[in-house]
Simulated assay, not measured.
Amino acid sequence: MTNKQPVIIRAAMLAIGDELLSGRTKDKNIGYMADRLYDAGIDLTEVRIVADDQPAIVKAVLELSEAYDYLFTSGGIGPTHDDITADAVSAAFSLPCIYDEKAMALLAAHYKSRDMEFTPSRQRMARMPQGAQHIDNSVSVAPGFIIANVYVMAGVPSVFQAMVENILPTLRTGSRFHSRTIICPFGEGVIGIPLREVQETHPETIIGSYPKFENGKFSTELVVRARDEEKLAAAAAAVEKMLADIQQ
């Protein structure tokens, strides 16, 4: 009888915007995406940040969408001149960037209900590659979109989060990680070599080492992760034995 092989779904994220690279805006979307994908059983394997530069966006979209099961983007689908993500993603897939009829109707009704003019700038938020599917936006109506395996979402954190929650139930998911946290009273300089030996002995686990410095003393939080609970238990037991041996 053979063990069932884990299903692994891999994703990348592309955060778009000059303001991220200048430090003017502090990104809040990458951490949120990482948390939600981890919970869902999707491995976020790579993250890139690029400027509002169409060739750079096109290059990143092509590379990441080809390399991973999913690519999630944030930023650059607003109403201003530097919101060029829709143009860049359309170019990446050699598709025309159009004013989507359904998106135009949604936005026109939204602004009419608020007694606001549906200006050309606001109409830009209805632009997307021809044939794209919508990602619903329960916060500010303007939709994100899906083309192939690329999910294009807003940069504003509240809108991004709403879009993420809408797409999560539609995604293929893989085998989830299980984890165990072990508090180590030693600094990484003490445990570095024996911990590496434990990791090499248990290659199907991931052992993370997170140092702390409190009250003038170093300690380390060790987190063991694995998709197989038995392999997790074996690696955690090996870490605990390593710590007991050091204390002797």
Rank of each mutant, 00 (worst) to 15 (best):
L44T: 06
E19Q: 07
E200G: 03
G192P: 01
A56C: 10
E117Q: 10
R127S: 08
A105G: 05
V239Y: 05
D82R: 04
K59A: 12
E46Y: 07
S94A: 15
V141K: 04
S74M: 09
M153G: 02
I84V: 07
N166W: 11
K231R: 14
G144V: 10
Q247K: 12
D115N: 15
V224E: 04
D115R: 12
A105C: 06
Y70H: 12
F118G: 02
A91M: 14
A126N: 11
T73E: 04
L14A: 03
Y151N: 03
I135W: 13
G31E: 14
N137S: 05
P211G: 06
A233N: 10
P185M: 00
I16S: 11
I9A: 01
P6K: 00
V198S: 03
E230Q: 11
E46V: 07
L64Q: 02
K4R: 08
P120E: 04
D228M: 04
A235V: 02
P211E: 11
G17K: 08
V58W: 10
A132H: 07
M125H: 08
A226E: 06
L95R: 12
M33W: 12
M13H: 13
A12I: 10
L243D: 10
L195A: 00
R180G: 01
E19Y: 12
I49Q: 09
V139Y: 09
D27Y: 15
T119N: 05
V156G: 06
K231S: 08
E46W: 05
I146L: 06
V7P: 07
E63M: 13
I30P: 08
V156W: 13
R172Y: 10
P129M: 09
A126M: 14
E229G: 02
Y99V: 01
S179C: 02
S209H: 12
I206W: 10
A15H: 13
V156N: 08
Q248W: 11
P169G: 00
N3L: 12
V152K: 05
S138F: 14
S219T: 14
I9P: 04
A126Y: 15
G23A: 08
V150C: 07
I193T: 12
M163K: 10
V190Q: 05
A234T: 05
